[in-house]
């Protein structure tokens, strides 16, 4: 059922930018239209690009926001999840709980 909804209506998560949009909804209570506009503005893309894996994959790599890997395309230089979330936090200008705890642990 999850897969059917994801394919029919979802924003593709880490394949594109669904995780970034939902972060603004969760932490800021932003409605979809506004959240998409903010993420698109921060990334310098259109709102339609946010669901497009081709538009987002390389961009996520350049901005070090984390992305998918597979057997043929490995990204061992890409950031770890916590590092990626650190970049997401700075790119979107939102606090991310796990990043705050990481920074505190590192003495930042």
């Amino acid at each position: 059922m999850d897969i059917a909804h994801s394919c029919a209506s979802g924003m593709n998560g880490l394949r594109a930018a669904g995780d970034l949009v939902v972060r603004l909804q969760m932490s800021r209570g932003m409605r979809l239209k506004e959240a998409k506009a903010v993420v698109a503005d921060k990334l310098g893309v259109t709102t339609r690009d946010l669901s497009d894996p081709l538009a987002m994959h390389e961009l996520r790599g350049r901005l070090r926001l984390g992305r998918l890997f597979e057997t043929e395309t490995t990204y061992f230089r890409d950031p770890s999840p916590l590092e990626a979330k650190w970049h997401i936090s700075e790119t979107l200008g939102i606090p991310i709980n796990s990043v705050i705890k990481l920074r505190a642990g590192l003495g930042f």
Binding site: G10, M11, N12, G18, S51
Partner: peptide, 18 residues
């Protein structure tokens, strides 16, 4: 057998019990 929203109309999905 399958249908979906128009390109550009996608929404985010939250999920209980993943």
């Amino acid at each position: 057998r399958f249908t979906g929203v128009d390109i550009g109309d996608e929404v985010v999905i939250t999920k209980d019990g993943t």
